[in-house]
Amino acid sequence: MCNSDSPNEFAQKLDNYIDSLPNKKENLIAILHYAQEIYGWLPDNVQWHIAQKLDIPSAKVYGVVSFYSYFTMKPRGEHVVNVCMGTACFVRGAEKLKNELENQLKIKAGETTPDNLFTLETLRCVGACGLAPVMIVDGEVHGKMHEPQEINEVLAKYRPEG
């Protein structure tokens, strides 16, 4: 999400994207992905706008947003930290990794730090089983995360003073 854009510029970007699609209604998920990319989340007013633009019930948009765990109706932090809780990661210490992240960030999974810098989330499996346990920050995979110091070093790269 670009911080220099105003809400009207976000809406214009979204409208331009929707208008560029040949089969708008069939591309609801792609539209939601794009909207979340530019807004950072999918608040009610954005969902309603998409429904109006596609001429579909807003309940259908809400249903898709609430069904898929990728979509969020709450603002996320500048950096999203995901912990893989798949079987390989779990047996190799994913719960300990999640607990350490909660301790270092002073939030629980599903929450955002008060400064809006980090959001901590869990995922089922990211397919990097050989690197278990795995954490992903803004799409960058960090594997074999066993030690608190290693976790701290990764987080430090995303902090303003980092």
Rank of each mutant, 00 (worst) to 15 (best):
Y39C: 05
Y39S: 01
Y39H: 11
G40N: 07
G40I: 06
W41Y: 15
L42C: 12
L42I: 13
P43H: 03
P43D: 00
P43A: 01
P43R: 03
D44H: 07
D44Y: 11
D44A: 10
D44F: 11
D44G: 00
N45Y: 14
N45G: 00
N45H: 14
N45D: 11
N45F: 14
V46W: 03
V46K: 02
V46C: 01
V46N: 01
Q47H: 01
W48P: 00
W48A: 06
W48I: 11
H49V: 00
H49S: 11
H49Q: 12
I50L: 09
I50E: 04
I50H: 08
I50D: 04
A51G: 13
A51F: 13
A51C: 11
A51T: 11
A51N: 11
A51P: 12
Q52K: 15
Q52M: 14
Q52L: 14
Q52R: 15
Q52Y: 09
Q52T: 13
K53I: 02
K53C: 06
K53Y: 08
K53H: 12
L54K: 12
L54S: 09
L54C: 11
D55F: 06
D55R: 14
D55W: 02
I56N: 08
I56T: 09
I56P: 12
I56C: 09
P57N: 07
S58L: 13
S58E: 15
S58M: 15
S58A: 15
A59S: 15
A59L: 15
A59K: 15
A59I: 14
A59N: 14
K60I: 14
V61W: 08
V61G: 02
Y62S: 11
G63N: 13
G63M: 08
G63F: 10
V64H: 00
V64F: 01
V64W: 02
V65A: 04
V65I: 10
V65M: 07
V65P: 08
S66V: 04
S66G: 00
S66I: 04
S66H: 07
S66E: 00
S66K: 13
F67P: 00
F67Y: 06
F67G: 00
F67Q: 08
F67N: 03
Y68H: 13
Y68D: 10
S69G: 02
S69E: 11
Y70W: 10
Y70E: 09
Y70H: 10
Y70P: 00
Y70M: 09
T72N: 13
T72M: 03
M73D: 08
M73K: 14
K74F: 08
K74P: 00
K74S: 10
K74Q: 12
K74Y: 07
P75Y: 02
P75L: 02
P75K: 12
P75E: 11
P75W: 04
P75D: 00
R76Y: 04
R76G: 07
E78C: 05
H79R: 06
H79D: 01
H79E: 01
H79G: 02
H79M: 03
H79N: 15
V80R: 03
N82D: 12
N82E: 15
V83T: 04
V83W: 02
C84A: 04
C84K: 02
C84V: 03
M85I: 09
M85W: 03
